[in-house]
Design a protein around this nucleic acid. Structure first.
Lengths: 106, 106
DNA sequence: CCGTATCCTTACAGATACTG
DNA sequence: CAGTATCTGTAAGGATACGG
């Protein structure tokens, strides 16, 4: 199975898309993301970020200060993918009226 | 949590995106989809199609002939979402060289 | 041909507690 | 603040066999 399938599964994993979307406006810190991505646990955020980082979509910058300060930002590749994810989310908002109508009607 | 989150999870579920992509070129039959979406089981295809149908993204047309003939097609709403999914996949292909490079380098 | 029903295994994901 | 470790339940997903 082609390697892009793996990346697709990372990006479209339960939290992958939301995390990319959260980073697309601006870099953010761990705690910010945790509050921003509604419902995500520390564990899953950490895991999701690691996956995206391993794929080269997210860049992790550590400042070894006290207390530690870590920023997560999109790489150029990440920006392209995140833009597509955003477009997908927008298209979803676009069709939500239809979706709701079908759900009721059924 | 907003209702669009549910639809997002359907669309970005393991097989959701691939199924939408497979339908975006033209309507297809169950068996065709099964062969087209590499690795999917009958159970998951059935389940995925049901979810997308319940969201009003996919239309199911049955001809009660013998043997039975069933076509799955995108609804107008489904077309919009599928287009966005396609764009996402294209963006992924676009960045795959970078991804591969990062994976090796690491 | 188009699915549904059943069984079974894994791995996803939440809660909690703890470390640098 | 920014995570990691462990423990545990749930449910997603695969294989197979059968029904309309």
């Amino acid at each position: 199975m082609c390697p892009s399938r793996e990346v697709l599964e990372h990006v479209t994993s339960r939290w992958g898309a939301l995390t990319l979307a959260a980073l697309s406006s601006e870099p953010a810190r761990f705690g910010e993301l945790r509050r921003c991505v509604d419902g995500i646990s520390e564990k899953m955020l950490s895991q999701t970020l690691k996956g995206l980082e391993a794929d080269g979509l997210v860049d992790r910058r550590v400042q070894s200060t006290l207390p530690p300060h870590v920023d997560y930002a999109l790489t150029p590749a990440g920006e392209k993918v995140a833009a597509a994810v955003q477009a997908l989310i927008v298209s979803l908002y676009d069709v939500m009226p239809d979706v709701m109508a079908v759900r009721e009607g059924a």
